[in-house]
Simulated scan of single mutants.
Amino acid sequence: MAYGSKHGATAGIAAEIGLTLRQDGFDAAVLPAGEVRDVSGYDAVILGGSLYAGHWHRDALRCAHRNADALTERPVWLFSSGPVDGSAEQEDLLPVPGAAREMERLHARGHVTFGGRVTSDTPGLLARLMVRRGTSGDYRNAEQIRDWTHQVAGELRRAA
């Protein structure tokens, strides 16, 4: 499990995915995508990236490119995190163009978008503006994350 996270919200989602996979009986490493150099030692990969202005996190994209040959040889799922509203819980959101291209290129088995988080602790001008306007919050849904991860675990079990 590798993730690209700017301010920690996506890292939190990745940690929840890793915990759920372990509870489902799988060994799961959770690593920042920028540190992942070789995925050939893993049977399957989940790669996630935060969303900013409609773009998938650069570290997630670079990880996908760096490991493209090995990723196409094993089951891969992608996730995004970012909407700072309830939209990710209300409907399946299409992946942003960068994630969609990686899905196709890597033959990913699926993609999901989870809600994101912007709070008063989030650095940056945009975050401060969102907090002032009352449009910030934590929209990560642990139950949704666990449910999706259980589905992935089920697919892995059936393929074994």
Rank of each mutant, 00 (worst) to 15 (best):
M1H: 04
M1A: 07
A2G: 10
G4I: 01
G4D: 01
K6F: 09
A9Q: 12
G12V: 03
I13F: 03
A14P: 10
A14S: 09
A14T: 03
E16H: 13
I17G: 06
G18H: 02
L19R: 15
R22S: 13
R22E: 12
Q23T: 00
D24K: 00
A28L: 02
A28R: 01
V30D: 07
V30G: 08
L31Q: 14
L31C: 13
P32Y: 05
G34Y: 08
V36R: 13
R37Y: 10
V39I: 12
V39K: 09
S40C: 10
S40W: 06
D43G: 05
I46V: 11
I46T: 02
G48C: 07
H55R: 15
W56K: 04
W56M: 06
H57L: 02
A60I: 05
C63S: 06
C63G: 05
A64W: 09
R66V: 09
N67G: 10
N67Q: 10
A70I: 07
T72E: 08
R74D: 09
P75L: 02
P75F: 01
W77P: 12
W77S: 10
F79M: 03
F79I: 02
S80R: 06
D85A: 01
D85P: 01
S87N: 03
A88F: 03
D92N: 13
L93E: 08
L94T: 13
P95R: 07
P95I: 04
P97Y: 05
P97N: 05
A100T: 05
R101P: 14
E102F: 12
E102G: 10
M103Y: 01
E104T: 14
E104V: 11
H107T: 10
A108N: 02
R109C: 05
R109A: 06
H111G: 00
V112T: 09
T113L: 01
R117Q: 08
R117Y: 01
V118I: 14
L125V: 11
R128V: 10
M130H: 14
M130Q: 12
V131D: 12
G134P: 13
S136H: 10
S136L: 04
S136I: 00
G137L: 09
A142H: 08
A142T: 08
Q144K: 09
R146I: 03
D147G: 06
T149R: 07
A153M: 03
L156P: 08
R157Y: 01
R158K: 15
